[in-house]
């Protein structure tokens, strides 16, 4: 199993000394070659989950294993197998696009860096921008740089948080193809997105979260055939509306 999440809980300290539980006892597994969609309403705990899986946030309790390596106890080995593409492109303002890729290649010890970087720059339409600083790029281009940094190495587990934000139609199409291609080549892919049609199109399985808990897990067909979702509809949007308590959009209309 490429990615294992066991009873992951994450709480935050509130301003008045109280605690807020963002994710509560979440457990799931993702196999190699699977593309799993992580969806849920705002505040469901998706980004907290992804950031914990990436090693940015420490779990309050529970554990996360990447190819059998604990993200807390064996952080370096686990992180070496991970690539996290956040929704907000955070880059070093003083390093160029090319230098960012080189930095990542050095950190992750990428051997055939030059060829990979060249191919990725072409693929993500970053050609001509190698010597540009992040401040000179549009948000969409910065997002592409973050994605390029994630893909320049052979990560066995790919985590995407809203991967299409800021991309143009061509970029969206290519990104979709890239995610599917990575999944087919054996990577374990976890995609968090509010674009349900994208999730339905590219993901082999879907996990729905709400209020920090997992409320549904399975393929779209499996979810549609669940007893409690009978009559919700057969597409992901209808299922999502039903399980999150918003009823069927068709019925509402």
């Amino acid at each position: 199993m490429a990615l294992v999440v066991e009873q992951f809980t994450r709480t935050y300290a509130g301003p008045s000394g109280s605690t807020f539980t963002a994710v509560d006892g979440l457990s799931f597994q993702v196999r190699s070659g699977e593309i799993v969609g992580l969806i849920g309403p705002n505040g469901a705990g998706k980004t907290t989950t992804l950031r914990a899986l990436a090693g940015i946030l420490r779990p309050t309790s529970g554990r996360v294993l990447v190819d059998g390596h604990d993200i807390v106890a064996d952080a370096i080995a686990a992180k070496r197998r991970l690539a996290f593409m956040p929704d907000e492109p955070h880059l070093f303002e003083y390093l160029t696009v090319g230098e960012h890729l080189r930095l990542v290649a050095r950190l992750y010890q990428v051997e055939d860096f030059e060829q990979r970087a060249k191919a990725l720059i072409e693929e993500l339409e970053l050609a001509g921008k190698e010597r540009s600083l992040p401040g000179e790029l549009s948000r969409g281009m910065r997002q592409k740089v973050v994605i390029a940094c994630g893909l320049v190495r052979d990560a066995s587990t790919l985590l995407f948080d809203e991967p299409l934000t800021g991309l143009d139609p061509v970029g969206i199409r290519r990104m979709r193809q890239t995610i599917v291609a990575r999944g087919r080549s054996g990577a374990c892919v976890l995609v968090s997105s509010h674009l349900l049609h994208l999730v339905e199109e590219i993901c082999t399985r879907v996990i729905i979260m709400d209020h920090g808990r997992k409320i549904a897990d399975g393929t779209v067909a499996e979810l549609a055939s669940r007893h409690d979702l009978a009559g919700a509809g057969s597409n992901l949007e209808q299922i999502f509306m039903r399980v999150t308590g918003h009823g069927s959009p068709v019925a509402q209309e």
């Binding site: 303002e93 080189r102 050095r106 950190l107 010890q109 540009s132 600083l133 401040g135 000179e136």
Partner: peptide, 19 residues
């Protein structure tokens, strides 16, 4: 004022070495 500028530094990061 806020945005830095690219300057040729002739200093490239080696692909191997200490962290």
């Amino acid at each position: 004022q806020a945005a830095p500028r690219v300057r040729a530094t002739m200093w490239s990061l080696a692909l191997s070495g200490r962290t």
